[in-house]
């Protein structure tokens, strides 16, 4: 993302004290389809840094650790307060948000910080990945309340505090993709446009490939969120149909990695269990309705 760099105290770099440095190792890739390569960077230490501020210094300096001028490292970010879901990457091997990854804590793990792009999505450049499959998952499960229109029809349905407290955590899912990165069943799908293939034809083929792949914990959880909403549940069957189709809930291997890595602590495995029960009931009901 657009990345301003701000040193909290620019004058401090000239002080006589031995300057502490942070060493960073970044897995870079110039464009899709190209080889990835490691590059080392060194950034002066400042108190209270996070990985974003480290990347900001790297972008501003645009030099590798050996002093060689390099193109600035590309990465995604926006809010910097762990609520927009942009800055997911692999930090010291763990999938997490770069903004809330504090350097002091990371340095407890070792002397060098390692940054890699997410491995389950196609790399666009360096740490930027293409997560459109994730958003496609939300379309598939119809993650919305099917209202008639946006005109005034009075208040929404009455909802008990218990129901609200149940729904709210699911609704804080920021589509960061950590749960997908950690999931053994969610494998990378990276179709490449063929020579002479029209953009629309490619988009359609890519969507088909996405749709055959596992939809993932985030989308299952959203399906359960809307299936529990008094109006949202009016199309509950359509969501269950998706969840029982190829790419649906049957692909979950119950590794439970998703819930362990979710930065928002969303009870994803509870949603998956609920989805499993609902899907079974729905399948039985459909059998008898025939």
């Amino acid at each position: 993302m657009i990345a301003p760099a701000h040193s909290s105290d620019p004058s401090s770099s000239g002080s006589g004290e031995e300057q502490r440095a942070i060493r960073v190792r970044i897995l870079r890739q110039d464009a899709p389809g190209q080889e990835s390569y490691w590059e080392r960077h060194v950034v002066p230490y400042e108190p209270n840094m996070n990985v974003i501020s480290v990347l900001q210094r790297i972008a501003a300096g645009a030099r590798a650790a050996d002093g060689r001028p390099v193109a600035p490292v590309a990465w995604d970010c926006n809010c910097l307060e762990e609520v927009c879901g942009s800055c997911t990457m692999l930090i010291n091997g763990a999938t997490r948000m770069a903004c809330s990854a504090l350097v002091d804590r990371l340095l407890e793990d070792g002397e060098e910080i390692e940054l890699r792009p997410m491995s389950k999505f196609p790399v666009v450049r360096d740490l930027v990945v293409d997560r459109r499959r994730l958003f496609r998952g939300l379309e598939k499960v119809k993650a919305w309340v099917p209202v008639d229109d946006s005109y005034d029809h009075g208040a929404g349905p009455r909802i008990s505090p218990e129901e609200q407290e149940d729904a709210y955590p699911l609704s804080t899912c920021m589509s960061c993709g950590c749960c997908l990165e950690a999931c053994p069943q969610y494998v990378k799908i990276e179709p490449v446009r063929r020579d002479g293939e029209a953009p629309e034809a490619f988009a359609e083929r890519r969507q088909g490939a996405f749709d055959r792949g596992f939809v993932g914990a985030h989308a299952i959880s959203q399906a359960m969120l809307f299936n529990s909403h008094p109006t949202g549940k009016m199309i509950a069957d359509e969501r269950l149909e998706t969840l029982t189709a190829p790419g649906g809930i049957q692909m979950c291997g119950n590794a439970q990695n998703c819930v362990a890595v979710c930065p928002k602590g969303i009870p994803l495995t509870r949603s998956i269990a609920r989805a499993g029960r609902s899907a079974t009931l729905w399948a039985i009901k459909r059998l008898f309705d025939r």
Partner: peptide
């Protein structure tokens, strides 16, 4: 009207014990 609309769209507004 806007709050009502957002409520209908499923925003999980905090609730009173009676469900308002």
């Amino acid at each position: 009207r806007i709050i009502d609309l957002m409520d209908r769209l499923g925003v999980p507004f905090n609730r009173t014990p009676e469900g308002f």
